[in-house]
Computed example of a mutant assay.
Amino acid sequence: MVSEELKLIIDELNIQGKMIFLEATTKEKITTFEREKNVTLPSKYKEWLQFSDGGEFFLPAGIQLYGIEHKPVINVNDNSRPNDDYIVIGALASGDPILCEKSSEKIAIYNQEAGRIEDDEIYDDFIAFLKDLHDLLGIGG
Rank of each mutant, 00 (worst) to 15 (best):
N79W: 08
I63W: 00
P72Y: 00
G90V: 01
D125F: 08
G62V: 00
F51N: 13
I74C: 00
V76N: 12
A114H: 13
S80N: 13
P60A: 11
L136G: 05
S104N: 09
G54Q: 01
E101F: 03
E47H: 00
S103L: 10
I117D: 09
N38C: 08
E101H: 10
Q50E: 08
S52G: 06
I109Q: 01
L92A: 04
A93I: 09
S43M: 07
K102A: 05
V88Q: 05
L41R: 08
F57L: 05
V39C: 10
E101K: 12
I68G: 08
A108H: 04
E28V: 03
L137I: 02
I98L: 01
S103E: 12
I68R: 04
E118C: 05
S80D: 15
K37G: 11
H134T: 14
Q50D: 05
F33H: 12
I63L: 07
L133C: 06
A91K: 09
S52D: 06
D120A: 14
E28A: 12
T40W: 06
H70P: 11
G138M: 04
K131T: 14
S104W: 02
D84H: 13
L136Q: 02
E121K: 15
N77L: 08
L137K: 01
Q64R: 06
N111H: 11
L92V: 01
N38M: 06
N77G: 01
Y86G: 09
R81K: 15
A114E: 15
A91Q: 10
T32W: 10
